[in-house]
Design a protein around this nucleic acid. Structure first.
Lengths: 123, 123, 123, 123
DNA sequence: GTGGTCTAGACCACC
DNA sequence: GTGGTCTAGACCACA
């Protein structure tokens, strides 16, 4: 996995995990990788993964059983959805629309790009 | 002008100036505020404005005449457009599309929202 | 390291780093001193070093790994060469040639001086 | 006349005047343009030309007759030559040689460039 | 520990 | 008046 410069790594990892849950690849009560495992896998400092898990735990998307590991929360899907949706419509969209307008674009131009994106990333 | 915490001030100022140019409020070869003037006006440190101007000069959106001040470049519109467009398409859009997909939405649903936004903000 | 008055310190530091790379003392992917370390070593303000690193990153001679440090770019030699060469041919040479002509000299007279210089400084 | 960014305008004007003298286009005791005339001609602030004349007067290359104008000094040629030569061999050349070496060039490569330069600028 | 940003204030050369 | 550079010191997010 490669990371963008524009967002902190730990949040990119959090997003990645949320997607697994939203796409139902990971199911409730399922155990997820340990901090160290994931750190090795992503070639990242364990502290960074720790931070991700901390963050997701605060969002109540995962929970911790001491000495055993981290698990997907029972209502993780719902939480992950709201975590995603929360800001998107209110915070992200206005900025997107502003850019669209300033750049002389419109939503129709986004359509083919969106279809291409979905095809490349989710199929 | 108030600043968000999510982006550095000097880049927010840069974006603001780009918008002036994209909206054709500022025209080519027009002199822009001096570093100190703008600093007072925005209530930020002159160094911060200097950094903005430095950045915009690198983007070839503004240029400097020694001892006189900064001016809007002849092809500022084009440069500003490509600077913003590049950022938008590469950095913002993927995240937007990802959210759209995960939230089960599509670009058609954005259309009425966008039209409403434009009407409210640019007319 | 002592600095001249005729050029800004941060660019003199940049030149110095370029030389290390051109002389192959520093190799691709090698980590370079942290901002603070170099600042202490050169007895300048960290901001000044930061500016140097910023500049060299724009030239794609060094790159940054978040929270870890700055590294010599893979093609740093090439980039450093073209950066220095461009400056030299366009900014320095015309003035040199002008002086040569006005002083009634030619390039042949430079040859022995150059050879002596190389011998004294690089061997 | 266009000015480079790398050197202050008033010194570039001074250089230009010195060249006129070295090329014997301007002769001893000849009156030179007034500050205002030259400022208009070069599209520069009169203060800037004033500074040039001040500087050249300090170098004893031109002199002033109050209320009449500026004149080329009797020994202007000699002074201009020494003003040029003074730093060239000792200050400029080492930097040039350093660059040549670092860039893997030698004086032979300069020869055709020099000939081309002379042809373009002085014939 | 790392870089990144910002403020405050100073000094300089230049137009 | 203009920009440009530098210092000092602070605070922050991040790995």
């Amino acid at each position: 996995m490669q990371f963008k410069d524009s967002q902190s790594i730990y949040l990119q990892i959090a997003d990645h995990i949320c997607e697994k849950i939203l796409l139902k690849e990971w199911k409730p009560e399922e155990r997820i990788s340990s901090v160290r495992e994931l750190a090795v896998q992503l070639e990242v400092n364990p502290n960074t993964v720790m931070r991700t898990y901390d963050f997701l735990q605060q969002q109540e998307i995962i929970y911790n059983q001491r000495g055993i590991g981290y698990f997907v929360a029972a209502d993780a899907f719902k939480k992950a959805l709201s975590y995603r949706k929360e800001d998107f419509l209110q915070k992200d969209l206005p900025g997107v629309f502003r850019n669209l307008y300033l750049l002389g674009m419109n939503t129709d131009e986004l359509k083919p790009r969106f279809e291409k994106f979905v095809q490349q990333n989710f199929s």
